[in-house]
């Protein structure tokens, strides 16, 4: 099981700024280890963000997203206390969802 995400959601005016840090190796499948064997691809393929249960961002990602990905999103019409839920799924079928409240 992957480590929890770090989600920071802050309100500025009526816009919530959401930053998410995920813990993931994001292997492209292009790299080789010291024995010259290809390290199998292992990367996040979908990322979704929901505000109070309503989907706001649906993302698809490939192996060229950096290791331990960081995403920043902005959502209008949010207020302090609203719930932000972020979910990722990777190419090995692993997934994780974490929640945070907007401060």
């Amino acid at each position: 099981m992957a480590d929890p995400m770090k989600i920071r959601a802050q309100i500025k005016g009526d816009v919530a700024e959401i930053r998410v840090l995920m813990s993931h190796p994001m292997e492209t499948g292009q790299r080789k280890d010291s024995d010259g064997k290809i390290i199998p691809a292992h990367y996040i393929q979908t990322v979704t963000v929901a505000l109070n249960g309503k989907n706001v961002v649906s993302g698809q990602t490939g192996g060229s997203v950096s290791r331990n990905p960081v995403f920043g999103f902005k959502v209008k019409g949010a207020k302090a206390g609203d719930k932000v839920a972020v979910t990722w799924k990777d190419n090995k079928g692993d997934s994780r969802t974490d929640e945070a409240s907007i401060a």
Binding site: L51, N55, V57, G62, V65, V70, F71, G72, F73, V75
Partner: peptide, 21 residues
């Protein structure tokens, strides 16, 4: 292609990300 995002329900069309180049 590194990523693609769809926005709805008030999400602003603004995204920041870190990528490999």
């Amino acid at each position: 292609l590194s990523s693609q995002f769809e926005f709805s329900n008030g999400a602003m069309t603004d995204v920041s990300i870190r990528v490999k180049v």
